[in-house]
Amino acid sequence: MRVLVRVLSLLLGLALAAAGALLAVEVAWAWWRPESPSLLVPWRQWRETLADLSWQSTPVLITAVAVAVVGLLLALFASLARRTNVGLREPSPGVTVETSPRSLARIVGTRVRGEDNVTGASVSATAKRVRVRATSALESEAQLRPRLSDAVRSTLADLPLQRQPQVSVVVDSRRDRS
């Protein structure tokens, strides 16, 4: 997402520069040589088309909605390009340490999968919250969940995290279904 926003901002810059250059050149040209046809952009044609279209005509409405959707997408991309790292404590002043949410999820996932009677696990992590979804064939949710929660909490407590994330564990057990 961060790369996308960089590319988008590059394109926006190019578009602004091109539009500005065209505006200045066309206005200056029309001022200097009022009789000659436009230089690069057929703006006289555009002027006639726009003078014929009313605000409630279909092409104008479609364009308006399209512009709004593009704007919404741009705003969405910009807000998703936030850095989402997990902060670790400073080992000494002036040294910051961080890791990625994916790495944190991997650490937790390795620990959970190493527990007895766990057949599989998927973990998603942010700095604030760690969600574990484990599957088990042999133990019910009531048996396995407290054990897994403790394991996850102790794994997290062992890491020098700036803040302890909340832990939520869900167990999908075949025994609960039978």
Partner: peptide, 19 residues
């Protein structure tokens, strides 16, 4: 870059919705 993309996006959204 983020501020630019966000500003442009919000402006386009406003323009489109307004029109």
């Amino acid at each position: 870059e983020r501020a630019l993309t966000m500003t442009t996006g919000l402006l386009l959204l406003l323009l489109g919705v307004g029109a």
